[in-house]
Write a protein that binds this DNA or RNA. Structure first.
Lengths: 327, 327
DNA sequence: CTGAAAGCGCTTACAG
DNA sequence: CTGAAAGCGCTTACAG
């Protein structure tokens, strides 16, 4: 049985009250240099570590959490179709509503905040396509930073992503096992970790069955029209693509060109947006509320100095089988 | 400002004391069915959620945490050379020593524990090479399970791993940028997620430089002797391998065959075991204490019902440049 | 600059 | 089966 050291023990040794110990612990300036030293000595000699449960329970003032969003995230608030980030933001807010935290939402582009960046206890940066420079800007403040829905190579910064690799791998594999052979992939060539991972999952699934992956990249949704028409000449059985929004666009193009879904060709997306159900799109569900919860939880740990070693958290996804692919 | 709902509010609505509310919350059998229902109604109507800080602070009895280890983990306790899991176990113990938890260490092979598996609040399963069936055995108890240093395909179970992909990728890339071209990989063909990932990292680094990856697999350390001798005929500049223990074995074989390290050939390992420094082995450090901390922290979250969506946590690694490769 | 005291929201002996 | 009360280890007005 290990004895737990408390502020009381420190107070006794340093010959001060627990109030003073607490002040030293929280860098309160109203402590004389002499007592501060005494207390720090005691803390170090006993190897004291504060009890975070007690700390957070007793806390009166709040943690200041700054949540930076890319333009895409803001757009999602207005556009009911592309609402990928809405549940993520709810998940974040929900988590922080349960603890003593005040959140400040701001635009990563403008970088305008209601409080000084120096008074922020931690940053949450939300949005696929976040640039390295953006993240580095916030790293400068030497406060915890957690990136949501992006992972940038070469920066060992805490990141929360969905497991796009496994997600695509599993759903493609599911249809391969049903006997499908001609499954092609439309890769949205935007710089985003998730899109890269999803493509790799498709590749792996096909290679495992000794099939040759067919990956067609497109830069812009406008490219899709020609691409779809051209690829359809090769009579693919299923088109898999980087995200639901692209899948729906592809379905529209197919409709315009008199192709029947799923009879002539199947379509598979990724994300499981709200509208995807209306289109009966077979897709992969990204647990977005949970992603927000986890991101907030990770930041809260970091703010409290818990397990600070940087990590990548990736959430398992779930295949959603609807009618856009014959089964 | 959101009003926080407490046991007090529930007590008032249900017309009972907060003690009774607490009893209902903790499934204490000493509550009449009638009051239990009243309290549950109140909880649901207000959407009450317990404050975990208060709960864990007030808690008198302990969480029972069962830590299952593979044989390899136990062997590491005796073998000072192969002590990969020692720091991981320290990290786990350290985390739990700070909270109200009692830990029970047991062998996954024997499955013999001092308490009933049913009284366990959560399982931590430690060891590369863990089998799917092993993990499924513990999943049966419907208690949180966290797997440490392994990830098993097809099971959406919480896992903590080191980022072997990025680790190898980065160190191989480092030497490629220094001008090295003939870098080969000795892949330890044991079923272990990490070894697979490390190999992929090597592959990616070479492909990016338009070099052809050369991967030689070996099943057993005894295979290494012939493999090393054969590969050396092709005059590689650096041999990269799956783990430090293999790297050291390779160094020994090279020495026996009168090859000079690093002049004739360089060697790179993975893990950064304690003995690796004695051999001046250039390697990749797996932050093992931190891995244990994070695993314990994740399990603790799950035990408390926090962010239960299953995730994979992967820790960033760090290249350790020593003298086994010319620089 | 410092201490005594109230309070954060729970749990759990204790008494009935 | 239930409630009043003490206590978990901190923080923070308040008073000096």
């Amino acid at each position: 049985m290990i004895e737990i050291i408390t502020t009381k023990d420190i107070a006794k040794i340093a010959n001060v009250s627990i109030a003073t110990v607490s002040r030293v612990l929280n860098n309160n300036p109203n402590v004389s240099e002499k007592t501060r030293k005494k207390v720090i000595m005691a803390i170090e000699s006993l190897g004291y570590e504060p009890n975070l449960f007690a700390k957070n329970l007793a806390k009166k003032n709040k943690w200041n959490i700054a949540i930076g969003c890319t333009e895409e995230v803001f757009e999602g608030f207005k556009d009911s179709k592309n609402n990928f980030y809405l549940p993520i933001m709810s998940g974040i807010k929900e988590y922080f509503s349960k603890i003593k935290a005040e959140i400040f939402i701001f635009s990563i582009e403008d970088k305008k905040l209601n409080i000084s960046f120096n008074d922020v206890d931690g940053f949450l940066l939300v949005g696929g396509g976040l640039k390295k420079e953006d993240i580095e800007f916030f790293l400068k403040y030497k406060k915890p930073v957690v990136v949501v829905d992006e992972y940038v190579w070469g920066l060992d910064v805490d990141s929360i992503v969905s497991n796009g690799f496994l997600g695509t791998y599993n759903i493609v594999r599911f249809f391969l096992e049903k006997g499908y052979k001609k499954i092609v992939y439309f890769h949205f060539k935007e710089k985003h970790y998730s899109f890269e991972q999803r493509k790799l999952g498709y590749e792996k699934a096909l290679l495992e069955k000794d099939l040759i992956p067919k990956i067609y990249s497109f830069q812009d949704i406008t490219d899709l029209k020609n691409l779809t028409k051209n690829v359809m000449k090769e009579k693919p059985e299923i088109i898999v693509t980087s995200k639901d929004l692209c899948a729906i666009e592809i379905m529209n193009i197919l409709n315009e060109n008199k192709y029947k879904i799923p009879d002539d060709v199947g379509v598979i997306g990724f994300d499981d947006l709200k509208i995807s159900e209306d289109f009966q799109l077979t897709t992969v569900r990204v647990p977005r509320e949970e992603m927000g919860n986890l991101a907030a939880g990770r930041l809260f740990d970091l703010v409290n100095g818990v397990n600070p070693h940087p990590i990548v958290i990736s959430l398992f996804t779930k295949p959603i089988i609807r009618k856009s692919v014959k089964i």
